[in-house]
Nucleic acid binder design. Sequence first.
DNA 1: TTTTATACAAACATGCATGTATGTATGTAT
DNA 2: ATACATACATACATGCATGTTTGTATAAAA
Lengths: 204, 204
Amino acid sequence: MVRRTKADALTTRTELLDAAERVFSSNGVANTSMMQVAEAAGVTRGAIYHHFQNKLDLINALMDRVKLPVDEMLEEIVQAHQDNPLAILKARCLHIIHQVEHDPHMQALINILLHKCEYVDDALPIHLRHLGGRNACIEESCILLDEAKKKGLIGADLNSQAIVLGLFSLVDGLMYNWLLDKSLFDLNSTAKQAIECYFKGLQA
Amino acid sequence: MVRRTKADALTTRTELLDAAERVFSSNGVANTSMMQVAEAAGVTRGAIYHHFQNKLDLINALMDRVKLPVDEMLEEIVQAHQDNPLAILKARCLHIIHQVEHDPHMQALINILLHKCEYVDDALPIHLRHLGGRNACIEESCILLDEAKKKGLIGADLNSQAIVLGLFSLVDGLMYNWLLDKSLFDLNSTAKQAIECYFKGLQA
DNA sequence: TTTTATACAAACATGCATGTATGTATGTAT
DNA sequence: ATACATACATACATGCATGTTTGTATAAAA
């Protein structure tokens, strides 16, 4: 019913993203129509198609909003524990957990990726981004573990890649299960204990 | 084009389930139409709607085929390691991993549940079954851990529930990531190392 | 052998989702 | 002040998926 200035348009865009986040989170991506997103944002489909090409483009925009802060934070961690590769690795895992627990946008997005979105060809760009970032993270972590091995912090017989994959799988699994039913357990304390346990098992 | 005897009908039904397993696995549940399932099975939609009420009913039937063997096997494990709760728990985890790696039906189903199916209200019955079985398993495992604690096998300060949740999250995460890209790592050896590591971290 | 039930195929009716095209009021630049 | 672009709403056209109904050849039952 109304037309807007440039700034107002950006507001509309943001509201659309917020709405998409909510509706996708509760209905699932495939199960949500553009109409539903529009309604949740209080506009018509016209607004969506003006700002985004289609549902995929919308999801991509959702990811753009969230992904950046992650990498920045990681820098800090590295510097904080300069010479202790294991501490860096552990802090990273706990940081991810913390992000998912406390940043609502991150939580919604991860929830969508893990539970509300089928890993299927035409959704590929999204998942490729997710996996791309994560694979880089794994490689980097392998290096950290190798350093730890050199310093004698962990058993020399351990396979770095397997250990890293296990670690990230543990983190993934914790988020996966917690997002499935947040009332089932406390994410922070559970993650802390489980990750602690895993690291303890690494010692030589 | 053809009509069949009772036995042939069962064959058709099985072929439909097999087809659904394949098509869902590659296209995703929401993204697959009954038409595609029918085509993959070499029949028409009529055949599907004769054997199943709708897509949900079809998926339920898929789960019925697989779920039973799991519980049976678990009995054996318990008896094999009669008095060592930790060994039982570890064997269970490795058994699940083994199942997913080697039983194609199980693998397809877990893949569908983890990656090809949105956790959304109308799919609820499916996920409830999945979660139900798993929650029972968690409770049971907590008991095992408590026993282990009494026997002094693990640290007395550990929270059983957190540890169990971590363990199952680890297993879930490993399956999750492996099914995402089976070429990325060897499931069996990676799981063995990671789980081993986790259990090692439990010791007092 | 006649009757009935089974196992599907084929056709029908409906609805919803998508993408696009068009209209229009308002902001913006000249 | 005029011309153009922006930011949407509205309307339209199309297609596909679903569920149902009907038709039919064969098997099973009586």
